[in-house]
Amino acid sequence: MTAPLLSVNDLKVHFEIGRRGLFGGARHVLKAVDGVSFDLRPGETLGLVGESGCGKSTLGRAILRLLPLQSGRTVWLGRDLARLAPREMREMRREMQIIFQDPLASLNPRMTAGEIIAEPLVTFRPELKRAEVKQRVQAMMAKVGLLPNQINRYPHEFSGGQCQRIGIARAIINEPRLIVCDEPVSALDVSIQAQIINLLMDLQAEMGLSLIFISHNLAVVRHISHRVMVLYLGKVMEIADRDSLYANPLHPYTQALNSAVPVPDPDIERAKPRVVLKGDLPSPLNPPSGCPFRTRCPRATQVCAECMPALERAGADHMVACHHAAMPDRP
């Protein structure tokens, strides 16, 4: 097996909430990401799924060191990112990029498409001549399916799908090894979603990119990922290769998520058994004791309130954190 590109070990991101004013309010700690570990191999896509507030975007940003870590290690090709000097880290950023959900909001409205795409290139390669920059930008635009003659247009002149292509061109111009894709298709219409998914998969095949693909859409994640990690209130519930996760989900939360996704087929959709979870996600400021999922879990017992189950091996490339993972679906 190839060495991992990125190794994340017991990563924690905590935010301190409150404590305002002269005398300070009560101090609360929000554990957005709480002890996440995984490896990402070169050329692999890891899907991150979970409901809003589960910590998937925070994790994506923490990996890129766009957020300070509470504790834990992120090791990039054998080097601990936390130990790098700021200058070394800056150099490293070339290799890791991010694209965002709202394509228009993530582009500077006062810069042209060409300036936006050129910015990372000019930052890291200040010696390049203007003509060469322009030529590379145009090549990149062609690669992501934009017309090179649109180079002087502003973001508002593009549609949502085209803006996302600009964001992708900006992310790949320095030939990174990793792109964190934070809900990159959620704001797009169905017909455009498919174009962007295909583009990302083509670029991955061509450039050998690793992707961390964050989405709440399980069908999209299934389509694009090699491995999938399911998060709930900052903790990993299950991580497995794509096929075992979808064919044989072991965690009751994964099962519930899976059955909640509407299938575009009236006969299947109306006949399928559903695990409808009660209630909403608990507040991350005041998570349940033990397993955070237990308040909504159909299998919860006393032990679930007492301690958080460890992430344990359940198959060749399948880990699950549940006291009752081996329980049959219908007791």
Binding site: S159, G161, V190, I192, A194, R222, H223, V263
Partner: peptide, 24 residues
């Protein structure tokens, strides 16, 4: 086109998504 461009949880294997070209 809409039906074919949707990734589905019940798809078998992974085929390339068919897209509707162009913009809305």
């Amino acid at each position: 086109g809409l039906l074919k461009s949707m990734p589905r949880l019940d798809e078998h294997g992974v085929t390339r998504l068919q897209t509707i070209g162009g913009q809305p």
